[in-house]
Design a protein around this nucleic acid. Structure first.
Length: 454
DNA sequence: TCTGGGGTCCTAGGACCC
DNA sequence: TCTGGGGTCCTAGGACCC
């Protein structure tokens, strides 16, 4: 723990939804829900207007639609989110060389490495306000909430206290009195399962946590977690802000709108995912030794199987071959075989045990490469979703740029507006109209919607 | 038709080695 | 006959985060 409030945590408010409202002027001030729009989708982000109606992250989209039927339900444009994130992270790095992104919309910044005359509360407060203003300006209107404290733990909690568009500085020495009355779940890492275990032991607040002995917490939660909480409850947190963190795994998974039971289709989809994982490994200059598959059954029970190769790979057919072998073991299992045949809702492939170098594979089997030409199956899609996902950017040969308002029954409805040209007309087209094409800014790489293949 | 996708970290047991 | 430890690697599953 530091003696001054020099750890800054910045969190962009309702990030995905805010980017949509920025780029789609007709949605400003209206409820917007970004997430999976298929039958099994969940909410990634809801705008504050939608939250008023009880829509929350991680809620099923079905539930969100029933709570807020008049919201705009969009499937997400990751290129736009990545771009906005890039701008913000760049700005933070201008301020301090020590920036630790936690996700597209969140980062820690170490102010000990910033160019400040001192780290007194008044100084860092002014600094943070200026930073928030600069984020707003650089992103064309996004707002950020900021927390400043003597540790990561308290800075992160602080940034959440005055959302949206807020700033909370926790003066050094006041951490304990801030945390004590709060629920234990305020501490990152205390989720539903941990909270329930604690509750059964009579521990509900941070003060309860503080009063509990180390032995008791370790007994309840294990050595690492229990020990960590014992420290956190006292506001003790010495974790450093770390700029570079290496990836440990790369994975692709998908939930399908209808359960799969055709083994050939399942195999084909796994092979396709293996190819995507390998492509991403190569793009990142990584390779890995452990190949895993993940299978979720119709009843939501989930299992994983993994195998470790003799040397790291970034080769699609090699990953696919391992994935298929793991699937074959499941299919042959006396318990798991019938489960697979009864219906699979999710499939995934991952590679871990990563090395940041690619070993020449001296034993490469050329026959593997044949599978690269194989015709891979398309995942089953929801009937109402074709190539036109709600929210996506499109361009019409005569009418210019806009976004997909809705699609279905052979018709696409487009609202012709952009950030610069608000309040354009709404028009419908046959969904195979050659004048209408998806519009993608600069990024050549494909963007999967939040909903994935569903 | 409740329950995404992409990650990280931890635990626990078994194999294997010294 | 008795009965070690410690360390590392691997696998499976679970909790959690955004």
């Amino acid at each position: 723990m530091r003696s001054q409030a020099s750890v800054l945590h910045l969190d962009l408010d309702a990030f995905f939804a805010a980017v949509e409202q920025r780029d789609k002027p007709s949605l400003r001030g209206k409820p917007v829900v970004v997430g999976g729009v298929g039958g099994r989708g969940v909410v990634a982000t809801a705008s504050y207007e939608a939250r008023v109606h009880g829509v929350r992250s991680a809620m099923s989209t079905r539930e969100a639609r029933s709570r807020c039927p008049h919201a705009a339900f969009l499937s997400g444009r990751f290129h736009a989110y990545r771009e906005a994130s890039r701008v913000v992270m760049g700005l933070l790095r201008e301020v301090s060389p020590l920036v630790e992104p936690l996700s597209l919309d969140e980062a820690f910044v170490d102010l000990e490495r910033a160019d400040l005359p001192d780290l007194e509360v008044a100084t860092v407060t002014d600094f943070a306000q200026d930073l928030r203003r600069r984020v707003h300006e650089a992103t064309d209107g996004l707002t950020a909430s900021v927390g400043l404290a003597t540790s990561k733990l308290v800075a992160k909690i602080a940034s959440d206290l005055d959302k949206p568009d807020g700033l909370v500085v926790v003066a050094p020495g006041t951490e304990q009195e801030l945390l004590r009355p709060m629920r234990a779940t305020i501490i990152p890492g205390v989720g539903p399962a941990t909270a329930e275990r604690l509750r059964r032991a009579g521990i509900v607040t941070v003060a309860d946590l503080e009063a509990a002995g180390l032995d008791e917490l370790v007994r309840l939660l294990g050595r690492a977690h229990g020990g960590g909480l014992h420290q956190m409850a006292r506001g003790r947190d010495d974790r450093a802000v770390v700029a570079e963190r290496e990836a440990k795994s790369v994975s692709v998974e998908g939930t399908y709108d209808t359960d799969l039971s055709d083994l050939r289709l399942i195999e084909g989809l796994l092979a396709r995912q293996a190819g995507e994982v390998a492509t991403r490994l190569r793009a990142a200059g990584l390779s890995g030794r452990t190949v895993s598959i993940k299978v979720r059954f119709h009843d939501f029970t989930t299992l994983s199987r993994s195998t470790t190769l003799a040397s790291p790979t970034d080769h699609g057919p090699t990953v696919a071959r391992s994935a298929r072998a793991l699937l074959a073991e499941l299919v042959a299992g006396p318990d798991t075989g019938p489960q697979v045949r009864a219906g699979v809702r999710l499939l995934g492939v991952g590679v871990s045990g990563l090395a940041d170098w690619v070993q020449e594979d001296l034993f490469a089997d050329d026959a593997d490469d044949e599978t690269e030409d194989e015709e891979l199956p398309e995942p089953p899609r929801a009937r109402h979703l074709g190539a036109w996902a709600p929210g996506m950017d499109v361009e019409h040969a005569e009418l210019g740029r806009g976004w997909v308002w809705g699609a279905g029954r052979g018709v696409v409805t487009v609202r012709f507006e952009t950030r610069e040209t608000p309040a354009g007309p709404v028009r419908s087209f046959p969904d195979d109209d050659p004048a209408l094409t998806p519009w993608s800014p600069t990024e050549p790489d494909e963007d999967e919607p939040v909903s994935g293949p569903a």
